[in-house]
Design a protein around this nucleic acid. Structure first.
Lengths: 235, 235
DNA sequence: CAAATTTTCATTGTAGACAATATGTCTTCT
DNA sequence: AGAAGACATATTGTCTACAATGAAAATTTG
């Protein structure tokens, strides 16, 4: 492939993250080192470095002598996610309002524009990625190296969960996306105003919206219909 | 060096963690790849993989084309640590009480014995490492992949901070270590009883003890003495 | 003599070839 | 026929050698 190795390696890292977040690489599948190295135009040693880094950030899991697996989603994942997410998101919101810089606010606004554009165009992937970036910038604003690791891990699975049940036509979900986008604008206003309490409260509200969306997908409305009768010929 | 490469690589990872946690490798210093590779009997590519992993876990920071730096402690570190630690420790305590397995409790007890032994023997390094391991096992008990990343990051700097002001002779600090050890035993009892609220409360108390210890070191008692007078010959 | 530029060299980054491990298949024996 | 074991193959893990980058020293020039 064209381009120098340095660029290719960085591109490889970014692109693998993108593919995992959008579930183009599905949870649980195993990656082929030779194949990926060839695809990104680098050799196996630097690719393996990239995979190690992805493992450190929770995107993949390394199995000794058995290859690299995209971080699986188990029966516990959603439960553990529900337990921790509101606490971390609220803390991030509070700290972001306290510590955000001008430059970071500008990046947040830029990301929000791209997020709204993705919602208009109905692109599920782009919407998911821009939402992830929005909250990632919020995390950078919080400027706390001890809280960031858990936020990063949460965003990986939050993004992947969001990809599972994205349906651009469903009007109810479209309404919820519109509300979420408005909440993002509120985040920007509160961060600029330095309103820590307001930002923490909004983080909870934003989480509740997402939680309701997930729950309504996991436990959809039941179908009530009479039981079928055994055919007479077999009775 | 002797031993197969696989063992050497694992040993390298573990030993580098140990050296960073005990500040044998001081915060901020740069590591020499060739030197370390030779020391652990492996070549540079696998060593670089180890360094990437350590970067992912927050032990070191990678600077492109400029080498690997042991994670520095800045003026913000302590502040950010104080903000997040109680929240995460309390959450870990609660979840540990809810989810601990028999095998994990046994490991916790084993670690606690080693911790007490280290306190008796006055070994600062061993005490720090066994304390880290105790809380690491608590983290495994919590069994939550979204909370663990921040706990791991907290434990790195908590351990390093603890190493800074360890003084085996100081009687006040010896008393505090004895209290901390007793609290560890309480942790074990509460986890075995499945007392989530109690375990969360104890986590806060345990944190307050540590916090007080850190603060008393950062802001020691002032010295009050009269100003010196300018010598007559110069007056 | 000071500042800027070039050159040198130590160190990081990468590539290709080799070794080791695990899985899957095929044979063989009961 | 079924199970156990050995072999073959594909994939991971590692090593040595080479390329590229950055920092520092030495030289040159105003």
């Amino acid at each position: 492939m064209s381009g120098d190795a340095k660029t290719n390696k960085l591109n490889c890292l970014e692109d693998l993250k993108r593919r995992i977040l959008t579930e183009a690489l599905e949870p649980g599948i195993y990656l082929d080192e030779m194949e990926l190295a060839e695809e990104y135009g680098i050799s196996r040693p630097p690719l393996r470095e990239v995979l190690r880094q992805l493992a450190g950030e929770g995107y993949v899991v390394l199995h000794e002598n058995r290859g690299t697996q995209v971080a699986p989603m188990t029966h516990k994942t959603l439960r553990n996610f529900f337990i921790v997410a509101p606490m971390v998101y609220a803390a991030i919101g509070r700290l972001a309002a306290q510590n955000a810089t001008r430059a970071q606010v500008m990046r947040l606004k830029d990301t929000q524009l791209l997020f709204r554009a993705a919602i208009r165009d109905g692109s599920g992937e782009q919407r998911a990625l821009m939402n992830e970036r929005f909250h990632s910038v919020m995390g950078e604003m919080a400027d706390n190296e001890f809280l960031m690791p858990s936020l990063r891990r949460l965003l990986i699975d939050h993004t992947r969960i969001g990809m599972i049940f994205y349906s651009p036509r469903n009007t109810e979900m479209a309404d919820q996306r519109a509300i979420a986008a408005d909440q993002h604008d509120e985040f920007i206003a509160l961060v600029e105003a330095g309103d820590a309490d307001g930002c923490a409260d909004l983080a909870i509200a934003h989480w509740e919206l997402s939680r309701a969306q997930i729950e309504s997908f996991v436990t959809p409305a039941s179908i009530f219909a009479p039981l079928g009768r055994v055919p007479n010929s077999l009775g």
